Amino acid sequence: MKLIIGNKAYSSWSMRGWLACKQSGLHFEELTVPLFGEDWDDIRTSENFAPSGGKVPILWDGETVIWDSLAIIDWLADKTHRDRFWPKDETARGMARSMAAEMHSSYMALRKQCPMNTRKKYEGLQFSPEVVQDADRILRLWAEARARFGSGGPFLFGTFGAVDIMYAPVVSRFLTYGFQVPGFAQSYMQTILEHEWIETWMESAEDEPWVIERLETPETVKG
């Protein structure tokens, strides 16, 4: 398998696809391409990118191409064992799938106003009501998952799985933009940040030479 991802410092969806591949336990080749650089137009229309319309991540598995992080999770769950990604209990699994889908389709204010940048940390920011609403919703879901299904370990549903993969970039955003979160969320965020794969991703992001200027001073921190 070959996984094509964007800059690790900025690409939240790439992070999800990469973590999914790691969680699968299958061998994969990793190819990082700098997003929006001077060669970006040529890269995103190349043969490797064509099926996705120029989006990352893209997983090539033989002749099969899967783009979109949630689709990659499902593909790898089917190839390996669904228990690697989703809770065994059907009630927990129903909530986990709903949370993953909500992350996939929602929280537009948080995404737009607080783009992922693993190399930055801000303090004392004022967030729009829409961002606060997104963050509150996420924290409520984390709290419910931990309270109802988290007894088997420190992750949202006990053990590391698809939902943690989908929300890992949110942990990064909360850290970058200095969100004030309750104690249980601080503990969960620390658990994610100390996971060996997350640490590897963050270290690689620090070493990247590429900079996307518009993401270095997003709207949230201007003025």
Rank of each mutant, 00 (worst) to 15 (best):
M1P: 15
L3V: 11
L3H: 07
G6C: 06
G6H: 02
A9C: 10
Y10D: 00
S14C: 04
L26H: 04
L26F: 03
H27L: 09
E29T: 12
E29C: 07
P34A: 12
E38Q: 10
D39Q: 11
D39A: 09
D39C: 02
P51G: 01
P51W: 03
S52A: 14
K55E: 01
W60Q: 14
D61M: 13
G62A: 10
I66K: 08
I66H: 08
I66R: 05
W67T: 08
D74L: 11
A77R: 13
T80F: 13
H81M: 05
H81E: 15
D83S: 15
D89M: 07
M99Y: 12
M99F: 12
A101H: 14
E102N: 08
H104Y: 13
K112R: 14
Q113G: 00
N117K: 01
K121G: 00
G124W: 04
G124F: 02
L125G: 00
P129N: 07
Q133T: 15
Q133D: 14
Q133Y: 08
D134Y: 02
I138V: 14
L139A: 05
W142C: 10
W142T: 03
A145S: 13
R148L: 10
F149H: 14
G153A: 09
G153T: 08
G158P: 01
T159N: 11
G161T: 07
A162F: 04
A162E: 01
D164L: 08
Y167P: 01
P169N: 10
Y177F: 14
Y177H: 07
G178D: 09
F179A: 00
Q180E: 15
G183K: 14
G183C: 07
A185K: 12
Q190M: 06
I192T: 02
I192C: 04
E194N: 15
W197T: 08
W201A: 03
E206Y: 05
P209M: 13
L215S: 00
E216R: 05
T217V: 14
V221N: 03
K222P: 00
G223I: 00
